[in-house]
Amino acid sequence: MKIASFARFVAPSAALMLLLMALPLAMTFYLSVRNCALQMEMVTVSESTPFGTREVTTQRAVLGPDGRALTTCRFVGLDYFRTVLGLGSGASAASAAAPPEASGAGAVPDNAAQARQQRSTEFIGALRFTLLYTFATTPFVLLIGFVLALAVHHVSRRWQGPYISATLLPFIITPVVGALAIKWLFRDNGFVPYLLSQFGISMFWMAQAWSAQLLIILYGIWHVVPFAFIVLYAGLQSVPQDSLEAARIDGASAWQRLIYVTIPHLAPLFVFVTLIHLMDAYRVFEPVVVLTQGAFTTSVQVLTYYTLLDEQNPYKASAAAVLTTAGIAVLLLPLLIKTWKEHRRG
């Protein structure tokens, strides 16, 4: 194919990715070092009340000629990064973090400001939990997925279809719905707490940080195992039968055949599943929102989401987003470099 026709075919797709991924990403970097705030002016308003007229001095947004509120935007450097990372020496962070438009300077009640201050130091916490989730789920996903794949591979053919169907369910279910279903299962008076109470264990799953985090991790395993299972199961079909046969003739036990023939053959698939899962686990979002409501645990995506939604502050959210991007880059770089080297060697 000639480059001209290649360009024509690829253009719509490339344009979409450029406009709605590359450009916004670049813009996030730009926004993260800026802040816009409403231009405020002091005005004296005279209020007439039944008890006479009094003058009140108050702040008011300056309106432009078109009736819109004017904003001043300025470069604030790394101030928001300091806030998000919780490094902010009070003064500089506070001045930079003057809330932009929607919050309306001065109109913010004190406790809201305090809550914001608290969440603002949570990026490290969010990152810590995201990484915990990623590395806690990966081994279980691989192990359970592989055991299931082996099991389904060895049952008779007519059973394979139903097992695969049932297994696919947690994977294709809407994540919000799956997380809600788990939440309802573990809710007070729900199914699991009742079963546990029969053994004398009584606990409120959503009330402590550790148990809520455990639930998120359980959800993650439940949700991703089917993917590992399907990929590894397909891989098992392609294990060369003659190698297995040769190993058997040479006297290898079933266990040895598994360790020395099957698993090495599947190694690239284990790498593949791990890579995909690393990418997806890093963006864990729905279960965190659903199972903790952002109370004790956040993940990096949740942090950006709430900064944007609750605080209406796209600049601070951008700083969190840039750090998120840096995190995934650091996480994937060694793997990408390794793949790249192998690709060049092979």
Binding site: L20, L23, P24, R283, L308, P314, I328
Partner: peptide
């Protein structure tokens, strides 16, 4: 290179684009 860039974007958490989407 297009494929590699697509792969990089595949791994990008969607929330990182959200602030820009709001502003844009």
């Amino acid at each position: 290179w297009l494929l590699i860039i697509a792969l990089v974007f595949r791994s990008l958490p969607h929330s990182t684009l959200l602030p820009s989407f709001y502003v844009m």
